[in-house]
């Protein structure tokens, strides 16, 4: 039942993935992964580059997610090869070209968390830790959540999550889930630490930035949420910080929650506690530096 860092024994993980019994642990989750040969070959450089220290194991164990990255059918394994990332339950999926197996993996894990995890209140948001408080960077379409999270990380913040704020309803704390930051198109060039690039994806060009060593070292440590920010990047905008009332903050957050509707009273209580204990700020800015400065300003 022992785990080892992913980069330590790739051939062992390969055998496990082909059997469908590779387990990967990150933050509060354990995902089981199964692959076919070509998909594994396309996926492994991504995992090696971005998650070298992720705890892996090849013995079958109960997991939170059951992921499969494989060709949609046997023909598509070799003939104009394609790949799908299955989240462990029925979900209509558009097959991707086989070279995008890493994307299929990332999307499958995201789908499995967003659509089948109920033991946390989940918000669609990036999360960083500045000092001892967590800052939730809520997603607003095109707002620039991931870019801001990456910039904050370069400025010394600890990345806790790029995609989901996993809030424990009992304690109100956020659990880290430090997956690689996915950056799109123009944002990629801003960060030298971006490791893997994928062109011509359904979302344009994608680049992934690995979580820092510090992020990974605190992945088991939940953090107290101190601030909520909603980034609004726009070329030519001047820096502006607009405080948002708690009740409006609640509505904004629940609109971006994939599971609030299913949590009943526990979800409501957790959300109310969040918006009354952590003030929300809408941040408008025209440059990433301004965005970082605004976040530091509201964290004072």
């Amino acid at each position: 039942m022992t785990t080892a860092p992913f980069s330590s024994d790739i051939s062992r993980w390969r055998r496990a993935a082909l059997r469908g019994t590779l387990s990967l642990e990150l933050g509060p989750f354990r995902a089981t992964l199964g692959c076919d040969r070509p998909s594994w070959a396309a996926l492994v450089p991504h995992l090696e580059a971005l998650y070298p220290t992720m705890a892996a194991s090849d013995t079958p164990r109960i997991g939170d997610q059951n992921l499969t990255v494989r060709a949609p059918n046997i023909l598509r394994r070799y003939l104009r090869p394609q790949v799908v990332g299955l989240p462990g339950f029925d979900l209509p999926l558009v097959p991707l070209p086989q070279r995008l197996a890493p994307l299929a993996f990332e999307m499958a894990w995201n789908a499995a968390v967003a659509l089948d995890c109920y033991r946390f209140l989940i918000l669609h948001a990036a999360v960083v830790r500045i000092g001892d408080q967590a800052v939730i960077i809520a997603a607003d379409t095109g707002g620039g959540k991931s870019t801001l999270a990456a910039a904050l990380m370069e400025a010394g913040a600890i990345l806790l999550s790029d995609e989901f704020a996993l809030i424990d309803a009992a304690s109100g704390n956020v659990h880290p889930f430090p997956r690689a930051i996915s950056l799109k198109n123009e944002s990629i060039a801003l960060f030298a630490a971006t490791r893997r690039h994928y062109v011509d994806t359904p979302k344009g060009t994608l680049g992934y930035m690995p979580p820092s060593r510090e992020s990974l070292s605190v992945q088991a440590t939940p953090a107290r949420i101190g601030r909520l920010v909603v980034p609004h990047f726009g070329v030519g905008k001047s820096a502006q910080n607009i405080p948002i009332d708690p009740e409006k903050a609640a509505i904004r957050l629940l609109r971006g929650s994939p599971n609030y509707h299913a949590l009943g009273e526990a979800g409501f209580t957790a959300l109310m506690r969040l918006v009354t204990s952590a003030p929300m700020h809408e941040l408008h800015y025209g440059s990433t530096e301004d965005g970082v400065a605004l976040v530091h300003e509201v964290c004072q």
Binding site: P28, R30, R61, I62, G63, D64, D116, C117, Y118, R119, A262, L263, A266
Partner: peptide, 11 residues
């Protein structure tokens, strides 16, 4: 982990 999975399912 079994407790995590059980909690998730029962919620």
């Amino acid at each position: 982990k079994a407790l995590d999975v059980a909690q998730n399912a029962s919620i």
